[in-house]
């Protein structure tokens, strides 16, 4: 019941979000068709605005965007619903990419961001968990100091700095990987590292704390008393419990990574959603921005729902009525 309510709540929430996005964009000065080279006559500008219905009042534009508007057909005189609209899943035309609809652009850019995000997620887990595990086991020794220092270091340095450093070293100096663009597995490596390092550091620290806490539990002492080998204690008993904080952190993390990162996408010139999001706002490409905002909202709402749901599965103490 709780989840049904949550799902039912998504629709009005999305409406509200789309309305706010639409309104806020309209408030920003400048329009999608303002250019350095102004049309030589006012008539040209008016024609462009009329073509995209920008000459209508904002509420009318919003209804048109939703697809909840009826117009009299010029030829037959019948009242007809305007084509497209949000209610049929059509985000409308892009003002900046005049040959493409927003749906076209999402279809091109979303897989790129998903790929990058998913690989970064794998990278985060593959680096963070072993690092945290290792530093916990080697607690107080040199390995712990070095590993923990590294984990703190990457948490402190934002992707904005990591990306250019990676490019300078691995793409320019040693030329192991391409400095930018997208297309082959080689193109993926540096962006994934740049995007994932920060989160890997976080995961490592979570894992270390988790394992250290677990190793002080009574059942571990019991296991040791039983004479189990240290490896077996660590892997079979301690790890399973220690990884739980990482699991609960992973849900929001995945949502974060999948929705694209403007910084990393811009640094590596990757045609992902993040770049389109920021540029569409700068271009005043209203349908594109609103469309992407809705997409983000859906992804975040759904992933949060999934995370909450998975808690109830993993932990019997958590129950939703």
């Amino acid at each position: 019941m709780y989840f049904l309510k949550r799902i039912a709540f998504i629709v009005p929430l999305l409406l509200l979000i789309s309305f706010l996005a639409f309104l806020l964009l309209k408030l920003a000065p400048g329009g999608p068709f303002d250019q350095e080279r102004a049309p030589a006559s006012e008539a040209i500008r008016k024609n462009i605005e009329a073509k995209y219905h920008l000459n209508e009042p904002t509420w009318k534009q919003y209804l048109r965007y939703l697809g909840l508007m009826w117009e009299r057909d010029v030829a037959s005189g019948e009242l007809q619903r305007v084509n497209g609209g949000l209610i049929v899943g059509d985000f409308g035309p892009s003002y900046k990419y005049r040959d493409h609809s927003v749906n076209d652009i999402i279809a091109q850019a979303l897989p790129v961001s998903l790929t990058l995000g998913l690989l970064a997620f794998v990278f985060v887990q593959c680096v963070g968990i072993p690092l945290g595990f290792y530093t916990a086991v080697r607690r107080g020794q040199l390995g712990d100091h070095v590993g923990s220092f590294f984990a703190v270091l990457v948490v402190c340095i934002p992707a904005l700095v990591v990306a250019p450093v990676l490019i300078t070293l691995f793409a320019i100096k040693w030329q192991w990987f391409p400095p930018a663009l997208w297309g082959t597995p080689w193109h993926v490596v540096l962006p994934v590292v740049a995007l994932g390092l920060f989160f890997a550091g976080k995961v490592a620290r979570l894992m270390r704390e988790g394992l250290l806490n677990t190793l002080q539990s009574e059942f571990i002492t019991t296991a040791r008393a039983k004479g189990l080998s240290e490896a077996k204690i660590l892997w079979k008993h301690a790890f399973r419990l220690a990884v739980l904080p990482v699991v609960s952190y992973s849900g929001p993390l995945l949502a974060d990574l999948l929705t694209g990162s403007f910084v990393v996408e811009a640094a590596f010139q990757i045609p992902g959603i993040g770049v389109f999001m920021v540029n569409s706002m700068l271009n005043r490409d209203y349908p594109m921005t609103v469309g992407l905002v809705i997409l983000y909202a859906v992804l975040l709402l759904v992933l949060n729902l999934v995370v909450d749901f998975s808690y109830s599965l993993l932990d019997p103490r958590v129950r939703y009525d």
Binding site: P111, V112, L118, L119, Q125, G183, H187, V247, S310, L314
Partner: peptide
């Protein structure tokens, strides 16, 4: 879910699968 998250080897396989999916997801090489 428990099966996947509790077995180290399974998690490894899962990540390999994800990696593979990721590479396949990158647009075909031109």
């Amino acid at each position: 879910f428990c099966f996947l998250s509790s077995r180290r080897t399974q998690a490894g396989r899962l990540s390999v699968l994800l990696l593979w999916l990721g590479f396949a997801g990158c647009t075909a090489q031109i």
